[in-house]
């Protein structure tokens, strides 16, 4: 018992200052950032055919489809977007550019949700990486409870469904039940490329193409998987406590 205390004290404070301070590089490896074209006019057509999921078109990069496989890196794109790439609308995921404020006009925070959020994790067919990144938010490095965010054991006690994975035919009904069980006001956060667009599994028979065809989605967090910081940013965008909104207020 005493030795555990000694152990805790000797490690000091590990917790990130995010969102008060910017995310550190240690928190964010290269693939934690969205790839953005260095010069859209030339980079995009050059990189388009390299993309295995068709995220790159002549005009834009659909971050909702990107699985951060890095094949386009070196063909005029680089992982230099902001880690705070979560958006309130699906179409904004096509407008992410380099720079500190990736999307110019974030939608207003969702009405009715207070400062404190209670999350219920719903896996509708993930590879576990997103599940584990969401759960990593509870570790001392991110400690999401300091922001008044908690995990619950039942959707009945939650405000927010955090959905990971590409919706399989088998999980459509359980997902609906979880959504119905959520008390109003309710919100859904799609974490990772899979629920947003099907990600690498898009187009497979027996899988839904996207989560927002099944339940209304309030925040999209791109990435494969998104880093914990990116997920945190997405959660905070629900009630307007994210860095971007804070900076705007200042």
């Amino acid at each position: 018992m005493a030795s555990w205390i000694e152990q805790s004290v000797s490690r000091g404070i590990l917790t990130s200052r995010y969102p008060k301070a910017a995310a550190t590089d240690d928190e964010t490896p290269p693939t934690g950032r969205p790839p953005v074209p260095e010069s859209p006019a030339t980079s995009l057509p050059a990189a388009r055919d390299r993309c295995p999921v068709g995220a790159i078109t002549e005009t834009a990069v659909d971050q909702g489809k990107c699985i951060r496989c890095a094949r386009c890196v070196g063909a005029g794109l680089s992982f230099s977007g902001s880690v705070e790439a979560a958006t309130r609308s699906r179409s904004d995921l096509l407008r992410i550019s380099a720079g500190p404020t990736p999307v110019p006009d974030g939608a207003p925070p969702l009405a009715g949700l207070g400062r404190s959020l209670h999350l219920f994790l719903v896996d509708v067919g993930s590879c576990n990486a997103c599940n584990l990144e969401v759960l990593a938010l509870a570790n001392p490095y991110y400690d999401l409870q300091r922001l008044g965010i908690f995990f619950t054991n039942s959707p009945r006690h939650a405000d927010v469904l955090v959905v990971v994975g590409v919706p399989t035919a088998e999980m459509v009904e359980p997902l609906r039940r979880a959504y119905d069980a959520l008390p109003a006001p309710k919100a859904v956060v799609a974490v990772g490329a899979c629920p947003i667009s099907g990600g690498v599994f898009a187009g497979t028979e027996g899988l839904a193409s996207a989560l927002d065809g099944l339940v209304p989605v309030d925040v999209y967090v791109p990435g494969c998987p998104p880093t914990p910081t990116a997920i945190l940013d997405g959660l905070l965008k629900l009630n307007g406590r994210d860095r971007e909104t804070r900076e705007g207020r200042r």
Partner: peptide, 12 residues
């Protein structure tokens, strides 16, 4: 008032 089915960990 809102009526929902009981939550059984996603099972019917």
């Amino acid at each position: 008032a809102r009526r929902v089915e009981p939550w059984m960990a996603g099972s019917p």
